Simulated assay, not measured.
Amino acid sequence: MGGAQQQQQWSSALASRDIIGRPKGMLMEPYAITAVQAFSLLTQLSQEGNTKLGDVAQSLVELGSDRQP
């Protein structure tokens, strides 16, 4: 039972990493900041808005997608 739960947590962590990775990249390039700085900005937005980090990341991706031609 413990192994199945650990596997599920591992899968969840990998999915979260993918969700957060794209908006980090979206912030890094135009603002010339590091990955650590981009992650810090995302966590700050999450805390200030009392919103889950994944939700902040997804919102940023959606906003960025709206601006693409």
Rank of each mutant, 00 (worst) to 15 (best):
L14I: 07
Q44P: 00
L41K: 09
P30M: 06
Q9T: 06
Q47L: 12
D55W: 05
Q37H: 03
D66T: 06
Q44R: 15
Q8I: 11
Q68N: 05
S46A: 14
Q44A: 15
S59H: 08
Q6D: 06
G25L: 05
Q7E: 09
F39L: 05
D66A: 06
V36T: 12
W10N: 08
Q5K: 13
S59N: 09
G54T: 11
V36G: 06
G25K: 08
A4K: 14
S40C: 02
G54A: 09
A13Y: 11
L42C: 00
S40N: 14
N50K: 11
P30N: 09
V56M: 02
L41A: 10
V61F: 00
P30C: 12
K24A: 03
R67H: 13
M1Y: 12
Q8W: 07
Q37F: 01
S12T: 12
Q8S: 12
Q47S: 14
D55V: 14
Q47A: 13
A32D: 14
E62K: 08
Q47Y: 08
Y31W: 10
N50Y: 03
G49C: 14
F39Q: 08
G21P: 00
E48D: 14
M28K: 14
P30S: 01
T34P: 03
D55E: 14
Q9V: 07
P69W: 09
Q6S: 02
Q7M: 11
M28P: 11
V36R: 11
N50C: 10
S46R: 01
I20E: 13
A4I: 14
M28I: 04
R17N: 02
R17E: 12
L42E: 01
G2P: 06
Q9P: 00
A15F: 05
V56R: 00
T43M: 11
P23M: 08
S46L: 01
G25T: 04
S40K: 02
S12Y: 14
R17Y: 13
L60D: 00
G64C: 07
Q8A: 15
Q44W: 11
K52W: 00
Q58Y: 04
I20F: 02
A13G: 05
A32W: 13
L63M: 15
Q8E: 12
W10M: 04
G25C: 05
Q9S: 04
L60P: 01
Y31I: 00
Q8M: 15
V61I: 15
P23E: 02
T43D: 02
L63S: 07
Q68M: 03
